[in-house]
Simulated scan of single mutants.
Amino acid sequence: MRCLPDAIDGHHACFFPSIVLGIAIVGVVGPTPAGIIFSLSISGWPKYARMIRGSTLSLKNSGFVEAARALGASEKYILFHHILPNSYGPIIEVATLGLGSKIIAISGLGFLGLGIQPPSPELGTILKDGLVYLQTAPMMSLSAGGMIMLFVLAVNLIGSELRSITDPRSNTIEL
């Protein structure tokens, strides 16, 4: 478990490794798709809650929010028309980075034998099954590992571009 200081209120935030919690929950619930989704969702939601909270706290004292209050806008209007649209960029970036880490966690659970079971294809299981043939047919494991790497890279690049499109502060002209 690692603890980091929180930039907003100075308290320390401790993070439990999601793969360990995923192994424990999948071990209890069973290696079903619903159990895997549940285990990874339970360990991942605090990251999104902290991101939304931090973004909201930083935006609630912004000039455009103060101007909307001065014009008599309701709190609900300010939340849905000013704060949430300006929070989309960081939330999208964290969600896409989280998707890449969840793909790696799902593949890790499959590699350990706790993922989706064999008639259904899963990259972690394919990677584990290819270890037996690593000397004679290395492409079996290398292709599964390469697909995991390419998918995570593609999701991260897409997330970075989506953030630059949706975040009004990052619209800079590149030469």
Rank of each mutant, 00 (worst) to 15 (best):
G113Y: 01
S107V: 04
M147D: 03
A137F: 00
N156W: 02
I173L: 15
R69W: 09
G30Y: 04
S120H: 01
V94C: 12
L79G: 02
I52Q: 07
I158P: 13
L97E: 11
T32C: 10
L99W: 08
F80H: 04
F80I: 11
F64K: 06
L175N: 14
I103A: 03
T96G: 07
L127F: 12
T125V: 07
P46K: 13
S164Q: 11
G30N: 00
S120R: 13
P168M: 04
E161M: 11
T136Y: 00
L123R: 01
K76V: 13
G63D: 08
I158W: 08
F15A: 12
T32R: 10
Y48G: 15
T136P: 05
L59I: 13
I103Y: 00
I106H: 13
A95G: 04
A137N: 11
S18L: 10
K102M: 14
G113A: 00
S164M: 13
M1C: 10
L40M: 13
I158S: 09
S74G: 10
C14S: 10
L162N: 05
L112W: 00
P33E: 08
R2P: 03
K60M: 09
L114H: 03
I23R: 08
T56H: 05
P31M: 11
C14F: 06
F38P: 03
I104R: 04
Q135K: 00
M140V: 08
L71I: 13
V28A: 10
D9V: 12
P90N: 06
P33S: 12
G124M: 02
E66K: 11
A144F: 03
L114S: 01
L99T: 05
S87T: 12
I91G: 03
V155K: 07
G22E: 08
F80V: 03
G63R: 02
A49M: 10
K76E: 05
V20T: 15
G100K: 06
A24R: 12
S74M: 05
R169H: 14
G22H: 08
L97D: 02
E161K: 06
I91Y: 10
A13T: 15
D167N: 09
L157G: 14
I103M: 06
T166S: 13
G115P: 01
S101D: 13
V65Y: 00
A105K: 07
P90W: 05
S160H: 05
I19R: 06
S18E: 08
I104L: 15
V155I: 12
S39A: 15
I23Q: 07
H12L: 15
F64M: 06
H81G: 14
T166N: 07
G35W: 01
A34P: 09
D167Q: 04
L153A: 08
A49V: 12
T136G: 04
S58I: 06
E161S: 15
L131I: 00
P33D: 02
T56Y: 14
S43E: 12
L150M: 08
V65Q: 11
L71A: 12
A7C: 06
M149E: 01
M149N: 00
F151P: 10
A13H: 03
I78R: 11
I103R: 09
A154R: 09
E66C: 10
A49L: 15
L112C: 12
I104H: 09
